[in-house]
Design a protein around this nucleic acid. Structure first.
Lengths: 253, 253
DNA sequence: GAGTGGTCTAGACCACGAT
DNA sequence: TCGTGGTCTAGACCACTCG
């Protein structure tokens, strides 16, 4: 039944000494599942086979499958719903809002900002870009510049840098507000997590005119690198944010 | 053996309809453990009885105890070490550095900043303080103002506000660099988590002189509220941070 | 009622750390 | 060698969702 080679499917008397490290069975099972997500065998929104089916298919107990699925759910890659099944997570607005959008209006409400694209261009990566995206110096990138507004008030000036190799042709089409959903649907690239570095800066002349604020106004500069399922950086996003009526919310747990 | 009243120790035929909600056994067990942490029955650094001992004591299976302990470990309240045992988490420098201190030098190294206390005072909470700490308007608070430096460079101007009721006499003694450790040791108050709100601001004259930077320099303003084990806010910490050589690091998962 | 994930149990064995 | 937490299994039953 099982078509997967699992290390040490049963550690028995005849085992030679383990060379180094030990990989529990449920992590090997998890790796199989991650591979299916990366390969698109299981696509966003789809429901997975039941725990029991997966267990017999792979040849382990249901408890082992459960532990693998639980870890993937904890990483927001799967969504489990009692009585319904297990589903591949989607980058719908709600998920983005809670997982990837930390700028919240001071009134406490989370809202999804509108976007106006200011420009799209392609070119060679500059140093900060190829370092961030782990590219070589001659790599081509796509740059998208857009202005984002909450309640029609411009609040974020955003510059995205994407490796052209990963997203060929993206520069030609329309740029949707929800990019991560497009990455998944059109390129099979799932954004799994991101790292943001924040600094306070003063607006320069260009930023000031775009954001309709005085030159020199203090603003939040967010330098985000987003990673795909396989751990490689696939997006760099530099945001300049006004924080007069909004703040960056960070939960420390 | 068990001295704890567990709801529905066994759901059986005679059960009347459940009124509302359902509380799994392992969460009830977890609540017992949290209570022991709050009451100081299990103090920071101490080792807990083994899973088996706890299971027989409470009268549930080892697997149920395990699930409760696993959740507490995931919340950084316990530390589990294979082969050694389960321990109550301490607020040592390393934990603080990773869990509660997000300002990182641009070179990527995490270092614990030095502190110089500028002043300690007591008084009535102002509005922002009693709102943050969920106090009534007449409550007394302790305020600590200090300057924190990385590599001898002043980088954070910090104002702490603490409810005097929770930390009586704290204003009289010396203020250590690691306050959370003091909270635990002297007042039995464990900081479990915190919420930070960030904005970009321009330095005023006072802040500028303390931080040895020009008036109007863009700086990061971090408004932290820290919560104790029982979920009540016990510290408000307002930090003004220079981000010329450091940044706030936020991982989105 | 059928099917799904969620809980709970009991028991065997493994990896790790200290003795 | 022993005690600890970690893994894995098998099976029973519960809570939730949907047809």
């Amino acid at each position: 039944m099982s078509v997967h080679k699992l290390e040490n499917p049963r550690r028995n008397v005849a085992d030679t000494a383990e060379p180094l490290g030990f990989r529990p069975l449920y992590r090997q099972v998890k790796a199989i599942f991650v591979r299916r997500l990366v390969d698109g065998v299981w696509a966003p929104g789809e429901s997975l086979p039941s725990e029991g089916q997966l267990a017999t298919e792979i040849g382990v107990s249901q408890g082992t499958v459960r532990k693998a699925l639980d870890e993937l759910a904890a990483e927001n890659l799967l969504v489990r719903r009692q009585g319904r099944g297990t589903f591949v997570a989607e980058h719908d607005e709600r998920r983005i809002l809670f997982q990837f959008f930390k700028l919240v209006h001071d009134d406490g409400e989370r809202r999804f900002p509108d976007s106006t694209v200011l420009g799209v261009e392609t070119g060679k990566a500059d140093e900060s870009e190829y370092v961030a995206l782990d590219l070589d110096g001659e790599a081509d990138v796509i740059r998208i510049r857009r202005l984002r507004s909450l309640d029609a008030v411009p609040i974020i000036l955003e510059t995205l840098t994407l490796p052209q190799r990963v997203f060929p042709g993206l520069e030609a089409g329309p740029i949707p507000n929800n990019l991560y959903s497009l990455f998944a649907a059109r390129y099979g690239v799932t954004i799994a997590n991101a790292r943001e570095r924040l600094k306070a800066v003063a607006l320069d002349a260009d930023e000031a005119s775009q954001l309709a604020a005085p030159v020199g106004t203090a603003a939040l500069r967010i330098d985000r690198i987003a990673f795909s399922l396989d751990g490689s950086p696939v997006e760099r996003r530099l945001s300049i944010c006004l924080t007069k009526e909004a703040h960056y919310l960070s939960d420390l747990r």
